[in-house]
Design a protein around this nucleic acid. Structure first.
Length: 570
RNA sequence: UGCCCCUUAGCUCAAUUGGCAGAGCGUCUGACUCUGACUCAGAAGGUUCUAGGUUCGAUUCCUAGAGGGGCAACCA
């Protein structure tokens, strides 16, 4: 102990400290809890995990890792009406996919007996009573934020009577809603939550885990802190809206007699531009068919992001950059997209894919020649190696966006009389524009310079533009699903009276391109492979619907596009 | 109308606890480039919500006010 300073070596790369980590570091330094830091991630299994949960997961599990503590996964399954085993399974899969492993897997529903014992002990101490008023009467008796509540007629029942009633509640003698167990605190308390909060209610319902063997269900305020205490949690991290619950949390763990009980710390929940992070609202999107399911690639759920192609590394990095504070936070989607690109940039191979094909015929290229061009799969600044062969021939496809008949001056792609470089290939010049009867451009007739196979002109002339292409005969047809933000405005809830977030759904959030053309080298890659389609974005072959015969790709995120900004500016 | 929380750059967060207000993202410029990507360099951007007070000195402490948010489910 004399050399305690040596036990806490200074880290050269100290993790970013937020106010919670400061507290935990202090706990460790002072030995406040007499045990290692212990956290928990406590979802209710009534929906899929989303980015907001990811923030909480990274915080709780991250603290455990950084401070040599532990983190439990606990299902707060105290409401039989909303919960389901399918959510339990999805949540476990998502937490692990994010890269975290819990020290213990617990269920609040396993604590029902212990919680009941605590309830009896509260009754015995005169700290809780059975109230037999109905819901309306209880609400009326609670008063309002500006006026005190008034005691109901059952508040002064004897301990014996309360104990008898509570036991009979448990035995299933009473119907739903006839009785409720309440803490006996203060009906005039300034904190509404402390006005004799409800502890236990009767629910003759099927619980996905307990079946029908239990009929009195603890409410959140009663179950949560005591569950934390039972598990030996030190710091119970939750979001800001539970601030007022802290008082009942402390009251209960103290009345229940826990030594060095956990304490609650609140932080701001995450809000992200152009999407919604509320299980209730996401459930509505699913139920009303606005999306295909919880794992629709447009959903901000972990399952949706995974299916879209986002890697867990990107989510973790994002959670680190947004930090933790007590201020309501709405984060720009650009910050998330940056994290996604930043992660993928260093990891995935490059490939050429033409989303909106426009035929190019090289009039001076031999009719039946097919060359094999060597194309490195990574740019020089990515420390990975590998290359593939790209067939090159007389008929190619380029992207319609890369041609303008009457280009503005800063457009340095293809246009009549202009020369561009085909990525990994030759320099070509557009000589002729072929149109159909409707005046639409349907083909470009170009010439290539045979001396430029290296991509360089021997005479040293410079071309500014390099565009992507595929060889028409060898290219694979594929479906590309271009996903965009789910909502059309940063705050989907900011709507006029009488409307709700559904009205702000972005009708362009999914654009399906049924017949894009991709280079043939990807033909035998496993489904679920990620790529950068050069100059276009990051994509992953769709796990649910891609087949070797018909490849389907999800767009994970587009490239940063300064030309698009230029165009937008006019 | 009561109690509680929050307010620092466009956004998210820092500021060694009272000592010259910084970073990442975004924006703009430029360099580099066979991706208008990446990378690199630089710039713009601040009445630290406001008004008082304490102090040699306040983003930090105190008072009042403004704005935003939470609390009156037998949800979590």
């Amino acid at each position: 102990m004399s050399d305690s300073a040596a036990e806490a070596p200074e880290s050269t790369s100290a993790p970013r400290r937020d106010f919670i980590r400061e507290l935990v570091a202090d706990d460790v330094a002072t030995g406040r809890f007499g045990r290692a830091p212990a956290t928990r991630f406590p979802p209710e299994p009534n929906g899929f995990l989303h980015m907001g949960h990811a923030k909480s997961i990274c915080l709780n599990f991250g603290i455990a890792q950084e401070f040599g503590g532990s983190c439990n996964l606990r299902f707060d399954d105290t409401n039989p009406a909303t919960e389901d085993v399918k959510y339990v399974e999805a949540i476990q899969r998502d937490v692990q996919w994010l890269g975290f492993q819990w020290d213990n897997l617990f269920y609040a529903s396993d604590y029902f007996e212990k919680l009941y014992e605590i309830a009896e002990s509260l009754v015995l101490k005169g700290k809780a009573y059975v109230d037999s008023q109905n819901e309306e009467e209880i609400r009326a008796g609670r008063g309002t934020v500006t006026s005190a509540g008034t005691p109901g007629p059952y508040r002064d029942r004897t301990i014996e009577e309360n104990l008898d009633l509570l036991r009979r509640m448990r035995a299933g003698e009473f119907a739903d809603g006839t009785h409720v167990l309440r803490a006996k605190i203060d009906l005039a308390h300034v904190n509404m939550i402390m006005r004799d909060p409800l502890l236990i209610r009767i629910r003759h319902a099927h619980h996905y885990r307990r079946g029908n063997d239990w009929c009195i269900y603890p409410l959140y305020d009663f179950a949560h802190g005591l569950s934390d205490a039972i598990e030996g949690i030190t710091r119970s991290l939750c979001t800001l809206e539970f601030k007022d619950s802290r008082e009942i949390y402390d009251w209960l763990v103290q009345e229940a007699g826990f030594e060095h009980p956990p304490t609650q710390i609140e932080f701001a929940r995450l809000e992200l531009d152009y999407t919604i992070l509320s299980k209730r609202k996401l459930l509505r999107l699913v139920n009303e068919g606005h999306v295909t399911g919880w794992d629709d690639p447009r959903m901000p759920t972990i399952a949706g992001l995974r299916r879209r192609g986002v890697r867990p590394e990107a989510i973790r990095e994002f959670c680190e950059t947004i930090g933790v504070a007590r201020k309501d936070a709405r984060v720009e989607i650009a910050a998330f997209e940056h994290a996604v690109r930043n992660d993928l940039n260093m990891e995935v191979p490059r490939v050429l894919c033409v989303l909106n094909p426009l035929k190019v015929v090289l009039t001076n290229y031999p009719e039946d020649l097919v060359e094999d061009l060597d194309a490195p799969s990574f740019p020089p600044d990515v420390p990975k190696t590998g290359s593939r062969r790209m067939p090159f021939s007389r008929e190619l496809y380029v992207d319609r966006d890369d041609f303008m008949e009457d280009p503005p001056k800063k457009f340095y792609r293809l246009a009549p009389g202009r020369e561009v470089r085909l990525r990994f290939g030759y320099l070509i010049t557009c000589n002729e524009v072929v149109k159909n009867g409707a005046g639409e451009v349907i083909e470009l007739r170009c010439t290539y310079d045979p001396a430029t196979r290296s991509g360089q002109a021997p005479d040293g002339r410079k071309v500014q533009g390099t565009i992507h292409w595929v060889s028409a005969a060898q290219a694979l047809s594929c479906e590309v699903r271009v996903y965009d933000r789910l909502f059309s405005q940063p705050d989907p809830d900011a709507v006029p009276e009488g409307q709700d977030f559904i009205s702000t759904l972005n009708p362009q959030s999914l654009v399906v391109i049924p017949d894009a053309k991709i280079e043939p080298s990807v033909a035998n890659d496993p489904i679920g492979s990620r790529y950068q389609f050069e100059r276009t974005g990051y994509f992953m072959s769709e796990v649910e619907s891609s087949t070797p015969e018909k490849l389907v790709f999800n767009r994970i995120v587009g490239m940063r596009d300064s030309w698009a900004k230029e165009v937008k500016r006019g």
